[in-house]
Amino acid sequence: MYISGVPGTGKTATVMEVVSALRQSVDDGDLEDFDYVDVNGMRLTEPHQIYVQILKKLQGLKATPNHAAQLLTQRFNQRGKKTVLLLVDELDLLWTKKQDVMYHLFDWPSHRHARLIVVAIANTMDLPERIMMSRVSSRLGLTRLSFLPYNFKQLQSIVSSRLSGIEAFDGDAVQLVARKVAAVSGDARRCLDVCRRAVEIASQQNRLKKAMKLTTIEHVHEALQEMFSSPMIMFIRNASTQEKMFLRSVVAEFRRSGLEEATIGQVLHHHNAITKLDGLQPVSVTSIIKVCNSLATARVLMLEMGRYDLYARLRLNVSIDDVLFALNSDV
């Protein structure tokens, strides 16, 4: 089975929940006993290590990847073993050039006596078609499930269910968080993070005022501002005079040439002119290049690597409008 969906939509949590429900029914005697193994592609250093992990969790043995693969193939060919439920998280990382790992994973269940169920989880819906060879994707089968991003109502109910019994949040505040997050990504993790931050802000303010208050829409708004804001505009606003001038000259050069790329040498001419216009003392070329480098390390500018000196090409990492907005707001 293949499960897909963007991060934070509850794929892994749902599978875990199903497994624990199955365990419960095993304990109740409604179901035959089974082994449960979960592996995560991100927790492996290298795709072939998955064999080692599975073998270790099934039989407690330690082996090299190749040997482990052999042992596992043997085991899944024998009859009369327990059923195994194998959960593979972050499937896309198991991609190798020969795709032998994925092939094995989906080939084992097709053995007659294997009694193996593989549940694979990944982010993209078209992963089987995109990266798998046809013989791998044909073994994967068509049992697929995709998790849609949460809409605001679902997010709202997730947050309210977490908060059930606690009077801490204003109803409108929860709705604002849910709507904002649903508009961007529909990620439940993000939603809970924003709420957590809002509670922190509220408790900080309550401590100052020495009053107990609910987390209101203002707190949530502040938390959202904090977590979704772009640092670029703030950086440009607080940049030094010469840095601002350099950005101004970059914009001037772009306007002159109509291109979105310029060399440092071209920008220098504008910089000199602007310095004179503003009545500041002229600075040396070395200092201007220093300024340019400090903008480049902050990635406001993208600067060509290498020792091109005055001929290094640069482009802006923010839109020109943003730069102008940030520069003009303080005049």
Partner: peptide, 10 residues
């Protein structure tokens, strides 16, 4: 993406 989703965005 998956790393970003797990980061708490503080």
């Amino acid at each position: 993406k998956r790393v970003k989703s797990r980061f708490s965005h503080r």
